[in-house]
Computed example of a mutant assay.
Amino acid sequence: MQTMTASAKHGLAAGSGHAPQRPGWVIDQGWQHYTAQEHAVWATLFERQSRLLPGRACDEFLRGMGDLPFRADRIPDFEQMSQVLRRRTGWEVVAVPGLVPDEVFFEHLAHRRFPAGQFIRKPHELDYLEEPDVFHDVFGHVPMLMNPVIADYIQAYGEGGLRAQRLGVLDKLARVYWYTVEFGLVQQSDGLRIYGAGIVSSYTETCFSVEDASPNRLWFDLARVMRTRYRIDDFQESYFVLPHLNELLGLANIDFAPLYARAATEAELQPGDVLETDRVLTRGTGRYHAAKRAP
């Protein structure tokens, strides 16, 4: 979920207080200005994730990655990516200078434009970055935009985000995005797989999410997810699992208003909570986060 924060570190949108002159905070990617070191950071990230993801990422992600003009040795050109995306699902990638205001983010998604940060992390930030960069946004998100189900779902999310803003319930909808688009898992016939961009772009969380005994893995329930807080500073304590990506088509077409009203009357849930009513795929040990909380 993109949002403007006072603590953001990168880019015009993140820190200067002045919107770019072009509508939608869109800027030129400036591909020709990337340095050799910046391309080298991309190469390091790309190569290690490419080795790690087979057997862990879902088939749709791997297929999308193979069909896009990725190169291991250089940051992608957004226009080249967009040419392929437009033909497949009508999406395009637009460069933005960092995190953008919510209404700008939703407006882009509602019109099948994916706003991607055009900066890349520093060499000392390979494993953790507070603000999404070009590797997270393009490597993590764009392959799934090649899938028609995800393409429709994220457009619907953009439209729903504009409505949720007007209703004052954006925090509830943001949780749905977080636990699907960013940190979602799906059950394939050959095992549990990742489709969330926040996981597939993370070297350490890729293995943790599907293999570690610590996190809970719960079958996805929309009303439950809307009540559940999430971690922005560490691995997730719970992951929500779809039985099939086509389940997202249902989410793209339902009326969220009754769910917002219901969520307003129910208690908020902590990221690691497991309820008696949950359908549990894996009940986690909680060991990882308990160790982090220990004095």
Rank of each mutant, 00 (worst) to 15 (best):
L259F: 01
T204H: 15
A290F: 04
R87L: 13
P143R: 07
L192T: 00
V200M: 05
T3Q: 13
E38N: 01
A43P: 12
V96I: 12
D273Q: 04
V138G: 09
T277L: 12
V84P: 01
D212G: 03
T285I: 00
D255E: 06
E266S: 04
A6Q: 12
R51Y: 09
V26S: 02
E237C: 09
R293I: 09
Y260L: 06
D133H: 00
E276A: 15
D67Y: 08
P215T: 00
G284R: 06
Q236C: 06
S202K: 05
H244K: 11
N253T: 12
R224W: 03
R217K: 09
V181D: 09
R87S: 10
F119E: 15
L12W: 08
W42C: 09
F256D: 11
T204L: 15
L68V: 00
I27G: 01
N216Q: 06
I27F: 10
G286C: 03
G286A: 07
T285H: 06
P132G: 08
L126D: 02
R121N: 01
F119K: 05
H33W: 12
D255S: 05
E237K: 13
Y157A: 08
R71N: 13
I154H: 07
Y157H: 12
Y288R: 14
M4P: 08
G90N: 08
D273T: 10
Y179D: 10
F139Q: 04
R175I: 04
I194K: 02
F46V: 05
P148S: 04
S82Q: 00
F208V: 05
P97D: 15
D73M: 00
R217C: 01
A43V: 01
E79R: 10
F240T: 01
R86I: 12
L85N: 08
L162E: 06
G15R: 15
M146E: 05
R71G: 09
A294F: 13
L248C: 06
P243S: 14
I75S: 12
